[in-house]
Structure formats: structure tokens, C-alpha cells
């Protein structure tokens, strides 16, 4: 019985995640089309809403071709690893108060470990295809992922310092007074740049620079295993946008502090106004709106900036973003201990 319940719970998270992946692809195409003064997909469904499903159906019905000299096991294992570990990150995300699959006390740590394994899928897929383009693409992608993971985890270190917990729900709830965007604004910008690079998006999509490397590590992959890569890429985009909004915008809490408003007029206790405020101040819609805005910014960035060179990519990581992050890693603990504002871990109370 408990197994069935946990399977249903898993499906309840994974299926909406995959559907939202489909709609993110459509929104990307439509938004980029209107930024470039085109129409974009408009044939399938109303306003082209079902375009992604038609594409997925087409890809699934195609014949898959494996190169003759490829390492067949690793060739198919790579996309599977990438997709599974991209979806595993959704396990620890709180969507609303009390709405989560796992309230793991090391949730952030779990997400880091899972994203560390997901890198292997790209590396294996590129190596096993026995093609120069795929191999170079996977090497570029892996170098990029390892470098930018350093920045992401250093910024996470500071978030953990200010919240005092590795638990995702504690991180969200400790932003009830003010979201961490205020004390950590420079680090949010660093984290956002890092997360664009971590998901291999333009302008950092050197792994699939089509002018140099056909389509990067997935050159040889076709049909359903290509769908795996496609889903994994967009699932990790949504996941990292959710992570951004959890760490810096307070997750499911509303960005305007409604509890202050309700404190102002204590005379009206159980009115509709108060009920409404208590619903608005922590509801999954907040998380959805924040994440959607961040996904839009991802698409906006893709439509705006040209692709940078690979040596520029690496020097931006190691010579620009990393020194700033390390400077803040030195500064913030000193300020915290100088002002004696050590965070209180809610889970220990």
C-alpha cells in the first residue's frame, strides 16, 4: 500500500514536470518568434499550443540509428542517466507548505549530488557515439559544467550560512520576513549567470554550437533517445529556475509581505480579507509565477545575446565570477559574526 502511494506521489510530480517542459518549449519558440518579429508555431492546436506534443510524437515514431562502432550500452545509457537525474532533483522541492515528496534534511545537498551525477550522462553519450563532433561537444559541456558547479555551490554555501540549514523548506521559511534577494543581490546575479551556464543555454551553449559542432554531444542521437536529452535539458532549466526562486525569492512565499498588512488591522480577524491574505501569502501560485518569470528571462537572454567563445566562457567563470563569489564567501561570515546575527536553525528548535 505504501509503495503504491509513493508511486502515485512520484507520478504526481513527474507528469506535471514533463508537461510543463512541453509548454516551456512552446513558450520559448513563441517568445523568440515575437522577439524576432515572426509568427512562430501556430498550426497545431489553438495558437500552436499542442506543437510540442506533435513534435514529441514525431520523434518517438522515428527510427533510431546507432553508429556502427559505437559502444551501444553506453550510447543508450547516457541519455537515460541524464533524464533520470534531471528529474530526481524535483524530489526535494516544496511546492506549497506541506506539499512535497521528501522533506529531506539535506535537500540542497541532495540536489547538488544529483546534478553532479547528471554530468556523466553527457560525457558518456558524447564518448560512446564514436564521433569527433559529439566527443568534442561532450568534453566542452563537461568542462563547463564542472567549472560552473563550483560557483553554484559556493553561492549555495552562503545561502546555507544565512539560513542555517540544508533543508529546502527551512531555507524557504526563513525568508518569511525578507527574501534573500536583498542581502545577496550580487550573488543572485552570479548565481543566475551560473545557472544559465549550468543548463547549457545560450549564450553559453558551446556544447551544441551548431556552426562548429553540428549539434554537440547529441549529434548521433536520434528519435526517442534524443527526446530524453531534450526533456532533460528543459527539465533542468525549470528545476534551476525553481531553485533560483527558492533560494533568492522565497519559494512559495509571496514576495510582498502580507503578514505585515494583516498586523496593521488586528480588529478584523476572521474576515474574508484575512483568509485571502493567508492564502496568497504562501501558495504554489507564487512559486509558479516566480519560476515562470525566471524561465522567461532565460528565453530573453537566449534571444538577446550572441554566443561567446569557449576561452571567454572559461575566463568568465574562473577570473570574474569565482573571485567575486570568494570575496563574498570571506565577507559575509565576517559580517554575520561581527553583528552576532547567527541564524537559528528552525529544525533544531
Amino acid at each position: 500500500m505504501s509503495n503504491i502511494i509513493s508511486i502515485i506521489q512520484g507520478l504526481l510530480v513527474i507528469v506535471p514536470a514533463l508537461i510543463s517542459v512541453a509548454f516551456v518549449t512552446i513558450s520559448e519558440r513563441k517568445v523568440m518568434a515575437s522577439m524576432q518579429r515572426r509568427v512562430g508555431p501556430n498550426a497545431v492546436g489553438y495558437y500552436g499550443l499542442l506543437q510540442a506534443f506533435a513534435d514529441a510524437l514525431k520523434l518517438l515514431l522515428k527510427e533510431y540509428v546507432a553508429p556502427t562502432q559505437a559502444n551501444i550500452i553506453l550510447f543508450f545509457l547516457g541519455p537515460v542517466i541524464t533524464l533520470i537525474f534531471a528529474l530526481l532533483g524535483y524530489l526535494v522541492i516544496p511546492y506549497a507548505p506541506g506539499t512535497f515528496i521528501s522533506d529531506h534534511r539535506l535537500g540542497i545537498f541532495f540536489m547538488l549530488a544529483v546534478s553532479a551525477i547528471a554530468t556523466y550522462g553527457i560525457l558518456l553519450a558524447g564518448w560512446s557515439a564514436n564521433s569527433k563532433y559529439a566527443f568534442l561537444g561532450s568534453l566542452r559541456s563537461t568542462a563547463q559544467l564542472i567549472s560552473y558547479e563550483l560557483i553554484l555551490s559556493s553561492v549555495l554555501l552562503l545561502v546555507i550560512l544565512l539560513t542555517g540549514s540544508l533543508n529546502v523548506i527551512t531555507i524557504v521559511e526563513s525568508q518569511k520576513a525578507v527574501s534573500l534577494l536583498l542581502p545577496l543581490l550580487p550573488l543572485f546575479i552570479v548565481f543566475f549567470i551560473g545557472s544559465i551556464a549550468e543548463t547549457n543555454r545560450a549564450p553559453f551553449d558551446l556544447a551544441e554550437a551548431e556552426s562548429e559542432l553540428v549539434s554537440g554531444f547529441m549529434t548521433e542521437h536520434s528519435a526517442s533517445i534524443f527526446v530524453f536529452f531534450f526533456l532533460a535539458e528543459y527539465a533542468s532549466i525549470i528545476l534551476i529556475c525553481i531553485l533560483n526562486s527558492i533560494l533568492f525569492f522565497g519559494g512559495y512565499l509571496s514576495i510582498i509581505v502580507f503578514s505585515i498588512i494583516s498586523l496593521l488591522d488586528l480588529s478584523r480577524e476572521d474576515t474574508l480579507f484575512h483568509v485571502l491574505i493567508s492564502i496568497i501569502s504562501s501558495s504554489p501560485i507564487n512559486l509558479a509565477v516566480k519560476t515562470s518569470i525566471l524561465v522567461f528571462v532565460f528565453i530573453w537572454v537566449r534571444a538577446s545575446f550572441p554566443r561567446i567563445r569557449f576561452d571567454q566562457l572559461m575566463s568568465v567563470c574562473w577570473l570574474v565570477l569565482l573571485p567575486i563569489t570568494i570575496a563574498y564567501v570571506i565577507l559575509l561570515p565576517c559580517v554575520v559574526s561581527g553583528l552576532l546575527i547567527n541564524p537559528v536553525n528552525i529544525s533544531l528548535l
Partner: peptide, 14 residues
Amino acid sequence: LSYILVYVGAVSIL
């Protein structure tokens, strides 16, 4: 988890 993070995510990927 730190085993995965350190050994799998950093050491053996290099």
C-alpha cells in the same frame, strides 16, 4: 551524499 559529490562529482570525472 558527500561521497557522491566528492568522489563521483569531482575526482572521478576529472
